[in-house]
Simulated assay, not measured.
Amino acid sequence: MSEDPVEQPAPVVRPEVWETYGPADLSAVPVFAGGFINFGYWHSVDLERPLSQDDRIRSEQDLYRHVLDAVAPDGGRAVEIGCGLGLGCALALDEYGPAAVTGVDIHPQQLRRAREANSPLLAARPQRLRFVLGAAESLPLGDAEFDCLYSVEAVQHFPDLTAFAREAARVLRPGGRVAVAGFFSVDGAPAPEERLAGLLETFASGLDIARPVSRLAQALAEAGFGDVRADSIGPQVWPGWDRWLARLWAPGTWPRNFMAAWEQQILDYYLITAARP
Score class of each variant (00 low, 15 high):
M1A: 14
M1D: 15
E3N: 14
V6G: 08
E7W: 08
E7D: 15
P9W: 11
A10F: 11
A10D: 14
P15Y: 02
A24Q: 15
S27W: 15
P30Q: 02
G35T: 07
F36S: 12
F36P: 09
I37S: 13
I37G: 09
F39R: 14
F39D: 12
Y41S: 05
S44D: 15
V45L: 01
L47P: 02
L47R: 04
L47D: 05
P50K: 08
S52P: 02
D54V: 14
R56H: 08
S59G: 08
E60S: 15
Q61D: 12
L63R: 02
H66G: 09
H66C: 12
V67H: 01
L68F: 00
D69Q: 14
A72C: 14
A72E: 15
V79W: 05
E80S: 03
L85C: 04
G86M: 00
L87H: 11
G88H: 01
E95Q: 14
E95H: 09
A100D: 10
G103N: 02
V104F: 04
V104W: 09
I106G: 13
P108F: 11
Q109L: 15
S119T: 05
A123W: 03
R125S: 14
P126N: 01
L129G: 07
L129F: 04
R130L: 13
G134E: 10
E137A: 09
G142K: 09
G142M: 12
F146W: 06
L149D: 06
Y150A: 03
E153P: 00
A154E: 03
H157W: 07
D160L: 12
A163F: 07
R166D: 12
E167M: 04
R170M: 03
R170S: 05
R170F: 04
V178Y: 05
V180I: 11
A181E: 08
S185W: 00
S185Y: 00
V186C: 12
P192T: 05
R195F: 11
R195I: 05
A197W: 00
G198P: 00
L200H: 04
L200P: 02
E201L: 10
F203D: 02
A204G: 00
S205H: 00
L207H: 04
D208Q: 13
I209G: 05
A210S: 10
A210D: 02
A210V: 03
R211M: 01
V213S: 06
S214Y: 12
L216D: 04
Q218S: 14
E222D: 15
A223T: 06
G224N: 05
F225V: 06
V228M: 00
R229H: 13
A230Q: 03
G234D: 08
G234F: 10
V237C: 08
W241I: 10
R243W: 03
R243E: 10
W244Q: 09
R256N: 07
R256A: 06
A261Y: 07
A261Q: 07
W262F: 11
E263H: 13
E263C: 05
A274R: 02
